[in-house]
């Protein structure tokens, strides 16, 4: 079982990194989401794996799995939704404003800065 989880984390990381290095916003967002899965699963797994030992206190239960990583990952999942949404709206704004969805700034930044009015 450990092998399955660890290899899943590895595959998610691989695909996530590859997509983050693409040139358009959408694959980058998908890539970041995959990296989020990988990180969340890794963090969760740092409590070690256990089947049928949920951290719900019962009289008949003998042991429980580690609740702390679960609590941390739970908020991480919700926050990652918020962050994805922010990145998506930024990507949308960039696309609508420039008519392209490239992640890289096509202009030379030197020119872009010197165009700004002097303070």
């Amino acid at each position: 079982m450990e092998m399955l989880v660890a290899s899943a984390v590895g595959v998610l990381t691989t695909v996530g990194i590859y997509l983050v290095l693409r040139l358009r916003t959408f694959p980058v967002i998908v890539g970041v989401s995959l990296l989020t899965y990988a990180v969340n699963v890794f963090l969760f797994a740092s409590g070690r794996l256990a089947v049928n030992h949920p951290p719900i206190l019962r009289d008949e239960a003998l042991s429980y799995t580690d609740p702390l990583p679960q609590a941390l990952v739970l908020t991480a999942i919700v926050i990652s939704f918020g962050m994805t949404a922010v990145v998506v709206v930024v990507a949308l704004g960039a696309y609508l404003g420039n008519d392209n969805d490239l992640v890289n700034d096509p202009d030379n930044p030197e020119d872009a800065i010197s165009k700004e009015p002097e303070a």
């Binding site: 984390v9 595959v11 990194i17």
Partner: peptide, 22 residues
Amino acid sequence: GDGVVAILGGLMAFGLSYHLLL
């Protein structure tokens, strides 16, 4: 190039998780 970086990253994430879990 990206693929190499990605695969290296994946292998490392796998190795870390696998060792940690055991």
